[in-house]
């Protein structure tokens, strides 16, 4: 009896110490995240008025959401633009990260140098810097008119041409946004046991087979992690069409704060859907898993 009591007090003390360490974060979570999220939901269904006593909210219902879908000419294009940007870029960033990590994993001399080079953009990327670089052609590695390749691509059917053209136009951006992902995947590669590869090559597997049968399945969790990181990273860019729309409507005269709160809610939902799709596409299939 006495022993049990002592154990419970020890447990409570343990929990209390933990909560003490966690408390700044917990308070922050409440004050700076959860309450603001709730508040923005309330704002998105309200009319905001500024009075001498501060802000006044009157609940309206879904009026702003209705307006966004029926009257706002900017919303759908911005939404499509953002979704297209994320849906196009994410797979390309992931493929580039896997390729670069595979290359890095194959060399010993100079690996540190290339790794540092590939991580470098993470340190300098910011909205204004990117828009200055893009705006002044610093990212136009391939001048459209200089290369015959471009014309050849232009003549291909749209299904093939569009992604190819996208790669050519955005090669720098794709690589610049891969910095963290390359390191994640490289670490995954280094965790794969060497003997598995040796066994496979003794059994006569080709490099191609080894990649798809051994390397890729082992990398899948890392690719999923990178995919989620990429979607969050891209969706969080202030240069997104949707993010810009939120910003531009912030002080709309007839609907200050509330209209942009409604857009940012839709923005978050879209991002969650994209994350859900990423997760479904990249998660490990349970039935095939046997280790």
């Amino acid at each position: 009896m006495k022993k049990q009591k002592k154990q419970t007090t020890l447990r409570t003390r343990d929990a209390l110490s933990g909560l003490a360490f966690l408390s700044p974060w917990l308070i922050g979570l409440l004050v700076f995240t959860l309450i603001p999220i709730g508040y923005s939901l309330v704002m998105s269904i309200s009319r905001v008025k500024f009075t001498v006593n501060g802000m006044e909210l009157t609940i309206l219902g879904a009026q702003w959401f209705e307006e966004i879908f029926t009257k706002d000419a900017n919303f759908l294009p911005a939404l499509l633009d953002t979704v297209e940007f994320i849906a196009f870029s994410t797979p390309m960033i992931l493929v580039a990260s896997v390729i670069l990590a595979l290359l890095l994993n194959k060399v010993t001399k100079g690996r540190g140098f290339f790794r540092a080079l590939f991580f470098f953009p993470v340190v300098v990327i910011s909205g204004p810097v990117m828009s200055k670089l893009i705006g002044n052609d610093a990212t136009m590695l391939i001048q459209a008119n200089d290369y015959g390749v471009y014309q050849i691509i232009g003549n291909l059917p749209g299904v093939i041409a569009t992604p190819l053209q996208y790669i050519f136009d955005n090669v720098v951006l794709i690589l610049w946004y891969s910095g963290v992902q390359i390191l994640i995947i490289l670490a995954g590669l280094q965790k794969i046991n060497k003997p598995i590869y040796e066994a496979a090559s003794i059994d006569g597997a080709s490099g191609w087979q080894i990649f798809w049968k051994i390397t890729f399945p082992h990398l899948k969790p890392m690719i999923l992690l990178s995919g989620i990181y990429t979607v969050v990273d891209l969706a969080g860019m202030p240069s997104n069409a949707l993010a810009k729309l939120v910003k531009n409507n912030l002080t709309r005269l007839d609907a200050p704060y509330s209209y942009s709160a409604a857009i940012s809610w839709l923005y978050s939902l879209v991002e969650l859907v994209l994350l859900g799709i990423t997760f479904l596409l990249l998660k490990e299939r349970k039935e095939k898993h046997d280790d």
Binding site: P36, Y39, M43, V246, Y267
Partner: peptide, 13 residues
């Protein structure tokens, strides 16, 4: 917290 876009909490903050 990691996943939600900053714009969601920007105005209330």
């Amino acid at each position: 917290v990691f996943v939600i876009p900053t714009s969601l909490t920007l105005v209330p903050q």
